[in-house]
Every structure is written in C-alpha cells, then in structure tokens.
C-alpha cells in the first residue's frame, strides 16, 4: 500500500476547465500523462494522511514525507503517530520501524497485499497506469469543481476484497498528483494529501538508503 501512496506528487489543487482553442490538458489521455510524468526527475513532499473509520468520531491523522528520484528510487516515511520507513534503491527494498530508539526490520513487508502494490509502483511513478496488470485504470476528465483523476480498480477479485478502488487526483502541474484516496468497501477511506512539493532538485543517494 505504501507503494501506491508513494505515487504522490504534491501540487496545487483545482483543474482549470478546458477553454476552446487552448492547449489540451496534460492529462487528456494515457500517453500525455506518461509524457508529462517523464518530465519529473525528482519529487520531495510532505503528506497528511487521514483515515476515517465508522467506530471513530474523528479521523486518524498520520504525517510523513516522501522522496522520489527517477527511475526507481523512493523514500516513503511516516513520522507520526508511527515512525516507519520504506526505501527503494538500486533494486533493494527495505521497510523499517522505529522502536526503542533504533530502526528494526518490518515483517509486514511480507504481506501479500504490500508486495503486489510494490510491484506497481514504478508504473505509477512513470504515469504508466495503462500498463498495469494489477489495476484496471479509468481516466476521469475534469468537471466543474472536480479535478481530473485516475481511478484504479483491482483486477484480481481477492485484492478487490481488500481495496475496492484507488482514486488519484491529478494536479495542475504536468505529471503531478494532488491526492490519493484508497477506498476499502465497508472499512472507510484513506486520504493522502501532498503538501510543500519540490521538484527536480538533486537528492543524494543516502535519502534512499536505510539509516545506519
């Protein structure tokens, strides 16, 4: 799941409705999305994740940061209330938990749902939704008051029992994402909103390696 979430490129909201004679939006089809995503070399952003549950009167709020460097480097770090870290670099995937002042390996990386999603992450970061074998994508054009978005539906019914769909809200900046919603039927929604995004700045290798 964290892999899907890693697909976040924070940007500003609101999609400007198309104007006749104006240039087509960057998200008009899968090819244009892929071309736009390819123009992003690095991303760093913070995120706020809110989780609604029927048994809670207010959502659970988590906060973290992410970093991405093309083609395959990723850092997805939760800072509160849990401190966990996912780093992907040079083909190596490490998932760690902060406990007792030290980083320890996270066994939940073995969860099948996580592994499936991890396999998708590079596709998403490439804007290459249409090549996924795990999710069937649908491109929803912008409407008044509603930005363009990509809806992902699990192909495998067994994954569909865990995640009913993922909605990726596209941002105005070409190749970027404003928010992600993970919908679990009967179990609420996880909403991830990206903030303070920085693009195409140099990111050192250490950001994608586990802490020493």
């Amino acid at each position: 799941m964290r892999n899907q979430l890693a697909l976040a490129f924070a940007g500003l909201l609101l999609t400007v409705p198309a104007v006749e004679g104006a240039a087509p939006p960057w998200y008009q089809d899968w090819n244009s999305i892929r071309r736009a995503a390819a123009g992003i070399k690095t991303i760093e952003a913070s995120f706020v994740q809110t989780r609604t549950l029927k048994i809670l009167s207010r959502p659970l709020v988590s906060r973290g940061i992410m970093a991405y460097r093309r083609p395959n480097d990723l850092r997805w770090e939760y800072r509160s209330p849990l401190q966990t870290l996912l780093v992907v670099h040079a083909g190596n995937v490490r998932r760690l938990i902060q406990h007792g002042g030290a980083w320890v390996a996270d066994a939940s990386a073995k969860l099948e749902a996580m592994k499936i999603v991890l396999g998708e992450i590079n596709l998403w970061l490439d804007g290459n939704f249409s090549s996924s074998r795990t999710f069937r994508p649908e491109l929803r054009p912008a409407e008044p008051g509603q930005p363009a978005r990509v809806e992902l539906h699990p192909v495998d019914p067994s994954l569909g029992k865990i995640i009913s769909r993922i909605t990726i809200t596209l941002a105005e900046r070409p190749g970027t994402v404003n928010a992600i919603d993970i919908v679990e039927e009967g179990e609420g929604v996880t909403h991830i909103k990206f903030e303070d995004a920085q693009y195409d700045k140099a990111i050192p290798d250490e950001r994608f390696e586990p802490p020493r």
């Binding site: 964290r2 994740q49 939760y78 969860l111 995640i163 996880t190």
Partner: peptide, 21 residues
C-alpha cells in the same frame, strides 16, 4: 482502534498506510 460500550467490544488493526488488516 478499539471501541467499547455496553453493546460490546470492537477492535480494528490498520497498517501504517491505513489499510484495514
């Protein structure tokens, strides 16, 4: 996440990413 009242006990486990486990 735990909720307890006169009707009973309800317990939920979530992954850090918010997935209901």
């Amino acid at each position: 996440v735990t909720a307890v009242d006169s009707a009973g006990l309800h317990a939920v486990l979530l992954s850090p990413e918010g997935i209901c486990l």
